[in-house]
Design a protein around this nucleic acid. Structure first.
Length: 282
DNA sequence: CGACTTTGACCCGCGC
DNA sequence: GCGCGGGTCAAAGTCG
């Protein structure tokens, strides 16, 4: 990644657990109720950035045919392939690749194909390790420094074929013990068996190692306009009502707080299967 | 040797 | 139009 920094203000806001300025009174009431409930049950849940840009349709800039080929194909096209001059040839091929990539993108733009964003959701986890084991295999494809934060953001893609789920992992700069994991998209396959050799020992699924987490999970959706839990759950592709779809290895007993009995109104959207005794405690 | 990580370069969209 | 920042690509390096 380049040394360019990424604004950490967003992270600051994300780390502000008491944020609910944009909620209506009813939503705020629900929100407060949820907070109260969650605080007592050690599970924290909150909205993040309801006005965030994630998933928001962006106006596409008009395609301008002015991308210059003067220093690439046009220029290179006039040169002769001087046999042993393989370096030159390689350079030409590289340039050609770049140009064709650019042309592809512009062609897509012309066809009105906007870069589409899958719904996203994020959750915060207290953890010593950045990349929490979630049962899927991920390949890191990028990392960027976060502005005003000493911690970089890492970009991962699911390694399964035809599955373009991505996740971003970053540490909250206000609370370095908190890891913010943002998922984008939904897996189109079952979670592969986790290779015990390759998985990090710190995140192995043994309950003993689960002590690295404090069971505090914070869910959010970056989609704008999401202002109640049901919408949030929907936008999360059902994550909240079925977190194991996304976090198969964090199913009970590892995430016991994510269980709730039926018929508890709002709560069941988020905590679908909590035991009666848990509710009684409230 | 394949899978994965690292990292500089690049592209795109947005705000000014 | 320009600069900035988020996100992605892809070559090179590393590891088992």
């Amino acid at each position: 990644m380049s040394g360019r920094e990424v604004d950490g203000d967003e992270l600051s806001r994300r780390c502000d657990f008491s944020f609910h300025d944009d909620l209506s009174p009813t939503q705020r009431e629900r929100h407060d109720f949820m907070r109260e409930f969650l605080d007592e049950s050690t599970l924290t849940m909150d909205y993040l950035l309801p006005g965030g840009d994630h998933g928001a349709a962006r106006a596409s800039t008009p395609v301008t045919p002015n991308f210059s080929m003067s220093s690439t194909s046009a220029e290179l096209g006039g040169e002769e392939d001087s046999g042993p001059c393989s370096k030159k040839k390689e350079k030409m091929e590289e340039e050609d690749k770049k140009v064709s990539r650019r042309i592809n993108r512009q062609a897509k733009q012309k066809l009105g194909e906007k870069r589409q964003r899958e719904p996203r959701f994020a959750f915060m986890t207290k953890s010593k390790v950045d990349n929490l084991e979630d049962g899927y295999r991920w390949r890191k494809y990028g990392q960027k420094a976060v502005k005003n934060s000493g911690y970089p953001r890492s970009y991962y893609r699911c390694t399964a074929q035809k599955c373009n789920v991505k996740k971003m992992v970053e540490r909250c700069h206000r609370d370095p013990t908190t890891v913010i994991t943002t998922y984008e998209g939904k897996h189109n396959h079952h979670s592969p068996a986790v290779n015990p050799i390759r998985s990090s020992p710190a995140v192995a699924l043994a309950p003993a190692n689960f002590g690295h987490f404090d069971h505090r999970v914070m869910c959010s959706s970056g989609n704008s306009g999401i202002n109640d839990m049901h919408q949030l759950n929907t936008a999360c592709g059902g994550f909240l009502s079925n977190p194991s779809t996304y976090l198969p290895s964090l199913t009970p007993p590892y995430l016991p707080q994510l269980q709730v009995p039926a018929d508890h109104g709002l709560l069941q959207d988020i905590l679908p299967r909590m035991s009666h005794s848990d509710i009684k405690r409230l």
